[in-house]
Simulated scan of single mutants.
Amino acid sequence: MGVEIERKFLVDQKAWEKLEKPEGLHYQQGYIPSDDNCTVRVRIAGVHGYITLKGRTKGISRSEFEYEIPLADAKAMLDQFTQNGTEKIRYKFPAGNRVWEVDEFLGPNKGLVVAEIELEDEHEVFEKPTWITDEVTDEMRYANSNLAVRPFLEW
């Protein structure tokens, strides 16, 4: 069984604007209606399609199953089955023995920049780049599935 152990942080906007960034990848994702025990996400990342099932979060961990699917299928699922979604550019920054994934949101979430780090253990110690600010791991409004329903620009 796949397990996602993830912490999420806000990014300092001024530092972000000055930061030399690697090439980002465009993400479009939508959510298939489900319940509190499972989130079903369809994602297009560049030219690849994915379907992901995520279980209920316990602490900073949850079960996660992600599978690559044909791009045409991902597009059809987004069109036919999702009611809401998010769009963003994702950047990857190596730091120590981990990689920070930084999402610069577009559309109704424009202006929000969030950094995530996936860990091997909930208590793992990791390096934080200087452009990382407040931790928002436990603030559900920053979950992508929630941003799809209640966008940042509506807060």
Rank of each mutant, 00 (worst) to 15 (best):
T86F: 10
E17P: 06
D134V: 01
R41H: 02
P94E: 08
V3R: 01
T39R: 05
G111Y: 00
D121F: 03
G46W: 09
F152P: 05
F152W: 14
I51L: 11
A115K: 05
R98S: 07
D12A: 06
L25K: 09
E17W: 02
C38F: 07
M77N: 12
Y91G: 11
D138H: 12
E64K: 07
Q29F: 11
V11I: 02
P151V: 02
V11A: 00
A143T: 07
V149S: 09
M1G: 15
K88G: 03
L119M: 05
E17F: 06
L25Q: 02
R43A: 03
Y31S: 14
G107S: 02
G96Q: 05
L71Y: 04
I32H: 00
E23A: 07
W100C: 13
R7C: 03
E6P: 11
W155M: 14
R56E: 13
V40Q: 03
S61L: 07
E124H: 09
P151G: 09
G55W: 09
V125R: 15
R7F: 11
R98F: 10
I69L: 06
T82P: 13
E139P: 01
M77C: 11
K14F: 04
N109I: 04
I5H: 12
E6M: 11
E139H: 01
L112V: 04
R43G: 13
L119K: 01
T86C: 12
G2L: 12
E68Y: 04
I44C: 03
L53K: 14
E17M: 02
I44G: 03
E4N: 00
W131I: 01
M1D: 07
G55P: 03
L153Q: 10
D73S: 12
E139A: 00
G96V: 08
A95Y: 07
D138Y: 03
C38E: 05
G2A: 14
Q13D: 09
L25A: 00
D121N: 06
N37P: 04
A76R: 10
T86Q: 04
Q28F: 04
D36P: 10
T137N: 00
Q28C: 12
